[in-house]
Amino acid sequence: MSTHSETNTHIGNSLSLKRIGLWVFILSETFLFGALISTRYYLQGVERPDHLNQPLGLVISIVLLMSSLAAYRGEVAVSYNDQKKFRINIISTIILASIFLVGVGWEWYEAFQYFPPSSAFGTIFFTMTGIHAFHVLTGMIALIIIVKMGSDGRFNSNSYWGVEGVVKYWHFVDVAWVFIYPTLYLVN
């Protein structure tokens, strides 16, 4: 009764279709982050408050980049059918992502004292990091799902779109941070 389920050979199994769909989604998200970043400059120019924990920002940026590397390795591993390396790397991605989120939480804790959400910089700071952290969180959930799917033996070197898609999204979240980090912490 399900000629219209996604398993339909014509529609569901084409890799390039899924890829293009995901890229269109990424394009769409780019506009969201573009609007976020423009808002920072529109409201505050390049001003930056004094009590900004720049070293912490650097550390969590590096953690996020590391998670991207791990995600990349996970994708490569599954494309060579190396299930063990796949598992280890994706789990490391998840752990690094949690460290990133803890870092953001710490920053929020500090930020509340110096520039709370009811100040102009705080408004931007909490919104930008918050929306980004939300993306990290959804990415983490997706990563957990693919670990589970991987351990059910649902991926192999011929068919691993799930991993590819999630990892691509993860890299995109990282790209967004590459712009957010200097915008919030460094420009002056």
Partner: peptide, 25 residues
């Protein structure tokens, strides 16, 4: 619709944040 809509979504979110979270956009 895939591009511009994200921007208005953000605009609405800003109003929501001003109302609910006490932000000052």
């Amino acid at each position: 619709s895939v591009t511009a809509t994200q921007v208005v979504a953000f605009g609405l979110l800003m109003v929501i944040l001003d109302r609910v979270a006490g932000m000052v956009f």
